[in-house]
Amino acid sequence: MAQTKNSELIKNPLNLNNPITVQVLGICSALAVTVKLEPAIVMAISVTVVTALSNLIISLIRNTIPSRIRIIVQLMVVSFLVILVDQVLKAFMYELDKALSVYIGLIITNCIVMGRLEAFALGNKPLPALLDGIGNGLGYGLILVIVAFVRELFGSGQLFGFQIIPQACYDLGYENCGFMLNPPMALILIGVVIWIQRSKMKELQEK
C-alpha cells in the first residue's frame, strides 16, 4: 500500500474524501441532530472520540485478532467506547445527553466507524490509524456543524441558543423558516454542500 503522509490522513477526510459528502456515510445522524449547533458539536466530538480511539485500539491489536471474528471484535470495541461516551455525557452533560437521546447509542451503527476500522485500522500502524480516525470524525463533524449552523440560524434565528437575528427584523415582517427545523431540510442542505464541493473540485467530478 502506498504510504500516505500523516498530515493528509487528517486533511483528506475534511475535504477530498469527506465521509458524509464523498463517501456518503453516516447520513442518518447528520439529519437528526443538526437542528441546533450545540448538540451537533457534542455529537461531532463524540463521533471523533469514538472513531479515533476505536481505530487506535483495533490497530494496536490488529495482529492478534482472529480474522473469523474480526467484525465482532470491532463491534465490541466500538460499543465499549460508545457506552463510555454515553456514561460520561450522562454524568457531565445531562441535558445534552437527553437532547441527543438515542443518537449517541446509534454511533455504534454509524457506518463511518466500522468503515474506517475495516478499511484502514486493520491494515495500518497505530499512529496513522489514530490520525485517520480523528480526520474522519472531524470531516463528519465539519458537515454537521455547517448544516446545524444554517438550520439554527434560519430555523430559529439563533446560534447556540442566543438570539442572532434582531427583533427589528421580525417587526419588519421577517419570519423564521419552520421548514429548516424539519429533517428533509437537512438532506437538502447536505445536497447543497455536496453540490458546492463538487463544482469547486475537479477531482470529484465524474467524466
Partner: peptide, 12 residues
C-alpha cells in the same frame, strides 16, 4: 496460530 478454534475462543 491466530486462526485456530482454541485461540478464537480464548481471545473472545
Amino acid at each position: 496460530n491466530t486462526q485456530s478454534n482454541g485461540y478464537t475462543v480464548v481471545y473472545s
